[in-house]
Amino acid sequence: MNDQYQAYGHSCWLLNDRKTSRTIGMDGVLLEEIMGEAVLEVAYVIKEPFQGQGYATERLQACIGIIFHQICAPRFVVQCAVENVASCKVADMYRIVCMK
Rank of each mutant, 00 (worst) to 15 (best):
E41F: 00
V29L: 03
C63T: 00
T23C: 15
L30D: 04
W13V: 07
T23Y: 01
K47D: 14
F50A: 13
Q51W: 02
G54Y: 11
E32C: 07
M35D: 11
L31R: 13
K19I: 12
G54F: 09
F68S: 05
Q51P: 02
I66C: 02
M35H: 13
L14Y: 11
I71K: 02
D27R: 02
S11R: 06
E58Q: 08
R22L: 15
Q4E: 04
D17C: 14
D27N: 13
I64M: 14
Y55E: 03
T57A: 03
E48A: 14
G54K: 07
Y55L: 03
A62R: 13
G25L: 04
A38K: 14
Q4N: 09
H10L: 02
V39Q: 03
E48N: 12
Q4I: 00
Y5P: 00
A43Q: 06
Q4W: 07
M26D: 13
P49L: 08
R22Y: 10
V45I: 09
Q51L: 05
H69G: 07
I66Y: 01
Y44Q: 00
F68W: 04
A43R: 04
E41W: 02
C63M: 12
L31A: 07
D17R: 05
I24V: 14
L14W: 12
G65R: 06
V39R: 01
C63Q: 02
